[in-house]
Every structure is written in C-alpha cells, then in structure tokens.
C-alpha cells in the first residue's frame, strides 16, 4: 500500500469518532480544550486505519465502473475467501494491530503512508485449522516529512471459518 495524500479532515474525524461511539468534543469541536492540553481537532488513536479511504488500490472498497459493487444483490455473493482482509495485511482476518504514536495528528494535516511486509509465520489451531499469519508495517508521515505513526497489522488466513 502507498498513499500519496491522506487528508486529515475534521468531518471525517467526526464521523469516525461517531462510528466507534466516542462523543469526546476533541473529535469535533475546534474550540474545545481538553484537560491534557489538547486543542483543535485531533485524530482518535485508531484513525490511521481509515487511510484506506485514500488508498487507490484498496480492495475492500467497492469499485466504480466495470466490476461494480460487491456483496449480495439478488444472489448471495461477496469477495472470494482468498481476497478477504483486515488491517491492511491483506490476508483473511485481522489478528493483531499495533500503533506507535510519534507526533500528534490533527485536522488539516496531510499524511503519506508507505507499507512494507513484515514477518510471516504459521500455527495450527483447533478452531480454524492451519493459520497463516502475515505482518504489514505502515509508516505515516506528515506534510513536514516527519514520522507521525507507525502501524503494524497482522492478518491471518484460516483454513476454514473460525468456530464461534
């Protein structure tokens, strides 16, 4: 994954915060100042995940044009199991996610993101058969070229659906 422009926008932060049930004014009120000294609108801790919106090749976003939307219409259809994904690791389900915060991310910032593959490993599980893990490390930099967030996602490809 490579993203040239991840625009950090106030309304996107507000919508993201609403979706995780967080009504903290620091995510929508430009004039709010928090106890910890934060002011202006800041990005919530997991907001970097929504950089997918700005990834031209993101495969979990329905495409316009020829391929069209995926998911069930008249018939139950969706993505092929091999193309399921999570966490930018592009492999099955999301197993693990870690963020390191180097500098604040605020509305108005413009980030870039570059990803590289990390470790891969395998494990046997009773609930889902053979598990193949793969790691992906994404570095987010701001408009000054400074590293702001390092995100590490671990995806897992399962042999069969996970027993609940």
């Amino acid at each position: 994954m490579a993203i040239d422009k991840f625009l950090i926008e106030a309304s996107h932060i507000m919508m993201f915060a609403r979706s995780i049930g967080d009504d903290n004014p620091i995510y929508y009120d430009q004039d709010y100042k928090s106890d910890s000294g934060c002011e202006g609108i800041i990005a919530p801790p997991t907001f970097a995940q929504s950089s997918a919106q700005f990834d031209p090749d993101y495969f979990l976003r329905p495409k316009t044009g020829g391929e069209g939307w995926f998911g069930s219409g008249k018939e139950p259809t969706g993505l092929k199991p091999s193309s399921g994904g999570g966490g930018g690791a592009a492999a099955g389900l999301h197993a693990e996610q870690r963020f390191e915060y180097h500098l604040p991310v605020k509305a108005g910032d413009i980030l870039t993101a570059t990803s590289k593959p990390g470790n891969t490993w395998e494990k046997e599980s009773k609930r889902a058969g053979k598990l193949k893990f793969s790691e992906s490390v994404t570095e987010y930099r701001n408009q000054n070229g400074d590293l702001v967030i390092t995100a590490t996602g671990v995806g897992v490809q399962t042999e069969r659906p996970v027993d609940s």
């Binding site: 995926f70 998911g71 069930s72 969706g78 399921g84 994904g85 999570g86």
Partner: peptide, 12 residues
C-alpha cells in the same frame, strides 16, 4: 463507512 472497510463479512 467511516473506515472504508467494506468487507462483506461485516455487513452482508
């Protein structure tokens, strides 16, 4: 919608 992750396993 907010995150952009439309994997149908979550919504379909």
């Amino acid at each position: 919608g907010a995150s952009g992750d439309y994997n149908p396993l979550h919504t379909d």
